[in-house]
Amino acid sequence: MYTTEKIERICKIIFVAMFSFYISIVALNNITDYNSNYEFVKHVMLMDTTFKNNELLWRSISFSQIHRISYIFLIAYEIVTAILGWVGTFYMIKNYRECSNYFHTSKRCAIISLMLNLVMWFFAFNTIGGEWFLMWQSQQWNGVGVARPMFVAIAIVFLYITRKDDEI
């Protein structure tokens, strides 16, 4: 028979595994269909589809090398968060039957992975892309509509995962 504590642990493992699978697919898509999302990064940094006569166009970056480095960094960042998520999933499964403190400690990689992903969605997409490069002004290259709900969804998982078994 499963106790509430065991069921919650299973739920936490499933959430981390789903997140890890998701970010793995995102990284895989960015690697295997490199040009599609590279164009996204490039146009956001160029700011070529923001409002015309914008006073903030001085922020745009027209160097393709910077676009490529930024996109490669983003893909590497996604890969790291995916790996940490899978490692976290593995340790959580491995320590599923252990005492509460030991299981909680086994969530470290998962917590780091989720936190890194929160930074990506909020800082990289909302702050840098959305506000610095004014991505929200673009009809074609606007990822803010995806970034905000992703941040909220991952934040909920993060809050649930970081909760100890014995916390109410």
Rank of each mutant, 00 (worst) to 15 (best):
E8I: 12
L159W: 10
I14W: 12
I93Q: 05
F19Y: 05
G143T: 04
S36L: 14
N54K: 06
D33M: 11
F90A: 07
T89I: 12
W136C: 05
F158I: 00
S24Y: 00
Q139H: 04
K52R: 13
Q137F: 00
E39S: 06
N54L: 09
N29G: 12
T3V: 04
V80R: 08
Y96V: 11
R108W: 11
K164H: 14
L116S: 05
G129F: 04
R97G: 10
T50H: 14
M92A: 05
V119L: 07
L46Q: 15
G145I: 01
C109N: 11
T105H: 11
F15I: 09
V152E: 04
T50Q: 15
Y22F: 14
M18G: 13
E8F: 09
W58N: 00
I79Y: 00
Y77V: 01
F19H: 02
Y2D: 08
N117A: 10
F90N: 04
I69K: 11
Y38L: 14
F125D: 12
Y91M: 12
Q137S: 03
R163G: 05
E5K: 13
C11K: 14
I161Q: 00
K42W: 01
M115I: 15
T3Y: 05
I93V: 15
A82E: 02
Y38Q: 13
V16F: 07
L28F: 11
E39G: 08
K52E: 14
I66Q: 07
I7N: 06
Y160L: 07
K6L: 10
T127R: 10
F19L: 01
S138R: 14
T49K: 15
T162Q: 11
I83P: 11
N35C: 11
N37E: 11
G129I: 01
T162V: 15
Y77G: 02
V152G: 01
F133W: 12
D165N: 06
N95F: 05
L134P: 02
A27N: 14
E5D: 15
I112D: 00
W141C: 05
N126W: 09
M1R: 09
A155M: 08
S100C: 08
S62I: 10
D48N: 09
N35E: 15
K12W: 00
S24T: 10
R163A: 07
M150D: 06
W58H: 02
V87A: 01
S64K: 09
I93K: 10
M92H: 00
G129P: 06
T4L: 10
D48F: 01
Q137H: 03
N30I: 01
T3W: 08
M45I: 02
T81W: 02
N54T: 08
L159T: 07
K42E: 02
T49V: 06
I61G: 04
S100M: 11
I112H: 00
T81F: 01
